[in-house]
Amino acid sequence: MVDYSKWKDIEISDDEDDTHPNIDTPSLFRWRHQARLERMAEKEQEMIRLKKEKEEYENQVKKLKQKLGGGKGDSTDMEDVKNALLELERKGDTILKKQKDLEKKEKLEPWNVDTISADGFSKTIINKTGKGNEEELSDEEREKRMKEFVKKNEVNIKKYGMFRNFDDSRRFLMENPELACEDTANYLVIWCINLEMEEKHDLMSHVAHQTICMQFILELAKQLERDPRSCISAFFHRIQQAEAEYKKAFTDELEAFKDRVRKRAEQKLQDLMKEAEEEERQARLGPGGLDPLEVLETLPEELKACFESQNIDLLKTTIAKMSPEDAAYHMKRCVDSGLWVPEAKNAE
């Protein structure tokens, strides 16, 4: 059997057909609606005040417990701290009672036209996965589209990347639903790699958390075959209300992602070092295309000593002692690498 009882107490401004003929019925309905909105606003403010009061209480308790755990000060001070902690705990009971009363009051409050439903977005979204359009784009077109997207949204992407609280992330993405896309996820991945290369490990871990949230939203959209923007609220509701197994899957994926970022960053650093070394080597090449360092290391020891000491007389003596073939071979390599410049004085 379907329980219809929850529908019987819906509060509607114009739910009374009979009004006095001297009463302006539309004005009465508007007044009732306005009064209900004001009550709802007061309740919202009360919830905000209670939340702030609860946060202040938790901070005070934390500070007192730290002070008590430190054990510094005389016995009188410690006794004062204990008394203050007991007083705070009594205050906490009061706050908890207020919270339960508000939750009970909200649960028993009749539904109305303003609470039965609400807009998910301020714009219309057609549920299309966009896979077909994505597959039709060439690599150049994808790169161009991502550059345009990043240029337009980079500030907001970085703002999102700095959030950590699920509620704050959800609120920001609901206000900026265009960020729920592959381009944002790709930007965050690149950002994580760059942060790791800069040895900003803690910040990388922070942004990585947001990256996995975005990837989970995109994955959920693929599973449901829906636009990722319409899955923002669904993901955050799911992760916050999820069972331990789902949260473990999220944590495991986050740790695996950070490990992949570290490996990729290390590989990129090695590649950059190799490129720098190759550029340096190319800059050293002599007129014959040989590297002077490599040539110097492969010279016979007595010839190598001549170049290291820059002793021309010793070089002439050493060359004279060598066979003509060996002398010609090594001196040609020295010329091709720039270690020896023939007729250098004439060239000057």
Score class of each variant (00 low, 15 high):
residue 12 I to P: 12
residue 163 F to P: 14
residue 238 R to Y: 06
residue 282 Q to T: 14
residue 265 A to R: 09
residue 122 S to C: 10
residue 44 E to H: 00
residue 328 A to Q: 11
residue 45 Q to N: 11
residue 205 S to K: 15
residue 183 D to A: 10
residue 19 T to H: 15
residue 202 D to H: 09
residue 11 E to G: 15
residue 290 L to T: 01
residue 180 A to Y: 04
residue 310 Q to W: 01
residue 345 K to A: 10
residue 253 E to C: 02
residue 65 K to F: 00
residue 14 D to F: 07
residue 113 V to Y: 09
residue 137 L to F: 15
residue 300 P to K: 06
residue 18 D to W: 07
residue 129 T to I: 05
residue 279 E to L: 14
residue 263 K to Q: 12
residue 40 M to C: 05
residue 154 E to Y: 03
residue 210 Q to Y: 00
residue 173 L to H: 00
residue 346 N to S: 13
residue 197 M to C: 06
residue 328 A to G: 07
residue 35 A to K: 14
residue 191 W to N: 06
residue 262 R to N: 03
residue 97 K to F: 02
residue 29 F to W: 14
residue 169 S to N: 03
residue 346 N to H: 15
residue 285 L to C: 06
residue 91 K to N: 13
residue 223 Q to T: 15
residue 129 T to Y: 08
residue 342 P to K: 01
residue 99 Q to D: 15
residue 28 L to S: 11
residue 6 K to I: 13
residue 322 M to T: 01
residue 110 P to E: 10
residue 198 E to T: 02
residue 247 K to D: 15
residue 199 E to M: 04
residue 158 K to S: 03
residue 266 E to A: 15
residue 331 M to H: 13
residue 325 E to Y: 06
residue 293 L to S: 14
residue 266 E to Q: 15
residue 221 A to T: 05
residue 122 S to D: 07
residue 337 S to I: 11
residue 201 H to W: 01
residue 265 A to C: 10
residue 32 R to V: 03
residue 151 K to W: 04
residue 182 E to K: 00
residue 138 S to V: 00
residue 284 R to W: 02
residue 37 L to Q: 02
residue 291 D to N: 15
residue 141 E to F: 00
residue 82 K to Q: 14
residue 35 A to I: 04
residue 159 K to R: 07
residue 270 Q to P: 02
residue 346 N to V: 13
residue 251 T to I: 12
residue 72 K to G: 10
residue 116 I to P: 14
residue 103 E to S: 05
residue 40 M to K: 12
residue 295 V to P: 10
residue 229 R to F: 00
